[in-house]
């Protein structure tokens, strides 16, 4: 039971740790004010509790397709919100209020989607009288593992940011969101809204889905050992959308003076020069 709590904690909640890590390293620090963080947390908690209570009813909607349809809608919302909110990674300009709202919405829906299943699992385990101790220990271990991984990722992302490898940070962001949206196909095939098809390859001999690496790679970029054609098509389409978005916005990119100790931007320097000229 203890191991199972740890595994499910990592499976359901590691994506949240990774998303928060990517957001905190890729967005300007002033974007997420305390007020916005509190709104995000309270809305997420409310959403998780509501979804948890409603889930048995939702599961019976549309002839038993309710959960899959709800999760599909959630995945699309997450993808769209976080895609349009990711402009900062490309341009390094401040986000507009709309983009900040989209990022918050995407984060809230992401938190609700991933947390609810874990709450259902904990609720199910609470039925065993002697499970509390194992659950608490499992939560602590799972939290420790997720936190350690997030710390590593945080340092890697900050390193890339310090070296101004914005294309690479954008690629990591794009792969993470693409891996997330590509789960849409499995959900829709599961309830026969999208026709299922045979797997186009099988990489079980390299990395198994059920292994630790499989879980991690799935969380990071949606790794599947035996993906269907539809899965691969959606994956590629999503990456193309990110590429188009990158090509569209990258010409507006703000240029950094990398060697400057204060990391001042050329834009700032230019603006100061203009202001001085205006004063004169």
């Amino acid at each position: 039971m203890l191991i199972n709590v740890v595994i499910l904690f990592i499976k359901d909640l590691l994506p949240i740790f990774i998303l928060l890590c990517l957001i905190s390293t890729n967005l300007p620090s002033d974007t997420m004010s305390l007020k916005r963080i509190l709104i995000t947390i309270s809305m997420s908690c409310l959403g998780v509790v509501t979804t948890f209570i409603m889930l048995p009813i939702i599961s019976e909607l549309f002839g038993g397709l309710g959960i899959e349809i709800l999760e599909s809608i959630e995945l699309i919302i997450i993808y769209c919100c976080l895609l349009f909110g990711s402009a900062y990674i490309v341009t390094q300009h401040q986000l507009t209020p709309l983009q900040v709202s989209l990022m918050m919405t995407g984060t809230i829906v992401f938190l609700i989607t991933n947390s609810t299943q874990f709450i259902v699992f904990i609720d199910s385990y609470m039925a065993y009288g002697d499970a509390i101790k194992n659950i608490i220990i499992g939560l602590i271990i799972g939290f420790g593992i997720c936190l350690s991984f997030s710390a590593l990722l945080y340092f890697v992302m900050n390193f890339l940011k310090a070296k101004a490898y914005y294309s690479l940070t954008y690629l990591i962001w794009a792969l993470f969101l693409t891996g997330n949206i590509s789960q849409l196909i499995n959900l829709l095939q599961q309830v026969d809204i999208v026709a299922g098809s045979e797997a186009i390859w099988d990489s079980t001999s390299i990395v198994k889905d059920s292994s630790e690496y499989g879980h991690l790679l799935k969380t990071l970029f949606g790794y599947e050992t035996s993906p269907s054609l539809e899965f691969v098509v959606l994956y590629v389409v999503s990456l193309i959308i990110f590429l188009i978005y990158f090509l569209k916005y990258s010409p507006n990119k703000r240029q950094y003076v990398i060697d400057s100790p204060t990391n001042r931007t050329i834009d700032n320097t230019t603006n100061s020069a203009k202001e001085n000229a205006d004063v004169l």
Partner: peptide
């Protein structure tokens, strides 16, 4: 994992 299916 073999079937790519998860259902509550």
């Amino acid at each position: 994992f073999d079937l790519n299916r998860e259902k509550m």
